[in-house]
C-alpha cells in the first residue's frame, strides 16, 4: 500500500516537473522530447486511475502522434532558411 502510494506521489511529482521543464525549455527540440516523455508518464497515470482506454489513447495520440507532428513541424520550421520563408501577401491589400 505504501509502496503504491509512494509510486503515485513520485509519478505526480515527475509529471509536474516534466511539465515545467517543457514550458521552461529554451530549446524547442528538447521541449518536444520532454513532451513525449510527459505523455508516456501521463498514460501511466491514467493506468493508475484505472482508465485503460484513456491510457491507450494518451500513449498513442497524446504522446506518439503529437510528438511526431511536433518533430515534423520543428523540422519544417528550422529547415526553412530566412530568405525562403516568404509568406505571400494577399492581393487585396495591394
Amino acid at each position: 500500500m505504501t509502496a503504491v502510494n509512494a509510486f503515485d506521489i513520485l509519478l505526480c511529482l515527475t509529471l509536474i516537473w516534466l511539465a515545467w521543464q517543457v514550458l521552461a525549455s529554451r530549446d524547442p527540440f528538447r521541449a518536444v522530447v520532454l513532451f513525449i516523455s510527459f505523455g508516456m508518464l501521463m498514460a501511466l497515470g491514467w493506468v493508475r486511475l484505472q482508465a485503460p482506454d484513456l491510457a491507450l489513447a494518451e500513449a498513442a495520440i497524446g504522446s506518439g502522434l503529437t510528438g511526431a507532428l511536433f518533430l515534423s513541424a520543428l523540422r519544417k520550421v528550422t529547415g526553412t532558411k530566412k530568405d525562403e520563408r516568404r509568406l505571400d501577401r494577399d492581393e487585396e491589400a495591394q
Binding site: P52, D53, A55, L56, A57, A60, I61, G64, L65, A68
Partner: peptide, 24 residues
C-alpha cells in the same frame, strides 16, 4: 483493439491512432 473494444479497453479511436502511427 477495434475488436476488443466491444468488451474491454480499446475501440475506434485507439485503433485509429495505431493505424495512424503505421501511416506516419
Amino acid at each position: 483493439l477495434l475488436w476488443a473494444g466491444s468488451d474491454r479497453a480499446g475501440g475506434a479511436f485507439q485503433a485509429g491512432a495505431i493505424l495512424g502511427g503505421a501511416g506516419v
